[in-house]
């Protein structure tokens, strides 16, 4: 049986660890709240942009806009894969899941004979691919958990240029979709070429085709040309914001589990300690009694 002194030392150590995990859990909870608010606040813009594009879009226009052009002859078999991970760890399998999704997509694309440029956002993804020894087209670790539309613009700008120039046949993003704090599946989204948004249910059936009655200034063609880049940029922005929120959700869950198991460990350790302490007392009493009896006898 373990010595009481040894047990006390371990209890202290587990208690200290539990204090840290509990604090991290609370910090993650409050950051999650704010990150979640940002995800919700970003929805009206995305919805408004998608509604207008859906109204203006016509399939016959696709050929005329470089951003809508489906890959065909004359484009390189090259795809840019943007992987968004977090800068910090201690969030369970969050980054591992994202990296696995990216590696699967990478394998699928390479099987089809496509050259893949990896663009990494976040320290964890960068660290993994450095370890795996794979060449990376770009990486940045300065975005943190408060991404802005400007960050998205910086990321997508060069990729959109390459896409328009025809040196890329597509741009895909691997990110954590934020369905809820506990459901954040890693997702691959193709943001270029643009898939025209479907007329959303939110815009209602009565608005379908209503754009024909609009006064358009300038022409539908020019409006589309200006708004498409904003739409692409916004998709990336949303991927960044959702991943940031998902990270805090994952960390909260991981830290809650850690705090709970520290509690379970403490229960067991305290029970063992008490048993050892009682055994020691019982032994001392029986030694004293035995000694006294020996003196009387």
């Amino acid at each position: 049986m373990a010595k009481p002194r040894e047990l006390r030392r371990r209890i202290r150590s587990v208690e200290n660890t539990r204090k840290i995990t509990r604090t991290m859990e609370m910090v993650a909870t409050s950051k999650l709240k704010r990150a979640q608010d940002r995800v919700v606040a970003a929805r009206p813009y995305a919805q408004a942009l998608a509604d207008v594009l859906a109204d203006l879009y016509a399939p016959e226009l696709a050929e005329r806009f470089p951003l809508l052009r489906q890959p065909g002859r004359g484009t390189d078999r090259r795809v840019a894969l943007v992987l968004i991970t977090s800068n910090r760890g201690l969030c369970g399998a969050f980054n591992a899941n994202l990296i696995r999704e990216a590696r699967q997509r990478l394998a699928t694309l390479e099987e089809q004979g496509v050259v893949v440029d990896l663009h990494l956002v976040g320290r964890k993804g960068a660290a993994y691919f450095r370890f795996a020894g794979r060449a990376v087209a770009s990486q940045r670790i300065d975005i943190g958990d408060r991404p802005t539309p400007a960050h998205a613009a910086e990321l997508i700008g060069p990729l959109a240029e390459q896409f328009i120039a025809g040196t890329l046949e597509g741009v895909e993003v691997v990110f954590a979709q934020f369905r809820s704090a506990v459901s954040t599946p890693p997702t691959t989204l193709r943001i270029l070429p643009v898939t025209a948004p479907a007329r959303g249910a939110a815009s209602g059936g009565d608005r379908a085709g209503a754009i024909a009655n609009y006064i358009l200034q300038p022409s539908a063609h020019e409006i589309l040309e200006r708004l498409l880049p904003l739409y692409v940029q916004n998709q990336l922005y949303r991927a960044l914001v959702e991943t940031a929120a998902a990270e805090h959700g994952a960390r909260r869950t991981a830290m809650k589990n850690a705090t709970d198991s520290a509690g379970d460990m403490l229960d067991v350790l305290r029970r063992t300690l008490n048993r050892a302490r009682q055994a020691q007392i019982t032994q001392e009493i029986s030694e004293i009694v035995g000694g006294a009896e020996a003196l009387q006898g």
Partner: peptide, 19 residues
């Protein structure tokens, strides 16, 4: 500020879309 100058919108404006 529209792309080509200021636009004013008053109640009852016709359906309108501009950059």
């Amino acid at each position: 500020p529209a792309f080509d100058g200021l636009v004013g919108i008053l109640p009852g404006h016709a359906p309108f879309l501009t950059l």
